[in-house]
Amino acid sequence: MSVRTVQPGLSFEYIMWVFTRISGMSLILLSTVGIISAFALGARTQVDLPTLMRWTFFPNPNHVINSNIPDVTLGWANAFWQVMQILIVFFGVTHAFNGLRVVIEDFVGQSIAKPFIRGLIFLLWIFVLLIAIYVVLFS
C-alpha cells in the first residue's frame, strides 16, 4: 500500500471547511456559556423557558414579545455580553450563509451563474451581519 501525501493548500474551500467546524463548535460552546450564565443569574427560579432561551442566545432589550423582564441592565446589558452576542451573530450568520453557498453550489455546479450567486450571498451576509450588530449595539 503506497503512502499518499496530502497537502491541503490554503484554498477558499479548505478555509471555509475548517471555519464551519470551528464556528459550529464555538456556537455550541457560546450557547452553553449563555445557558449556564442565565441559570447563574437567576433563571432557575425566576424565568420561564422563552425568557431563558432569549437570555441564552440574544440578551437584548426589545426584540421579542414573549418574555417580560423589563430591566436588562441588571447583569446583561454590558460590554461583555454585547461582545458575546456579536460573536454568536458573527459565527451563526457566517456559518449559515457559507452553508447556503455550499448547498446552492452543489445544485448549480460549474456554471456561469456561480460568481453572481456568490456575490448575492456575500451581500446578504454583510447585510444581515450589519443589521444584527446594529440591533445588538444600538437598542
Binding site: N62, H63, A96, V128, I131, V135
Partner: peptide, 13 residues
C-alpha cells in the same frame, strides 16, 4: 426562519 426573525425583530424595533 432565523433570518425572518432577524428582519422582523429589526423592523419591530
Amino acid at each position: 426562519f432565523v433570518g425572518t426573525h432577524i428582519y422582523a425583530s429589526f423592523f419591530m424595533q
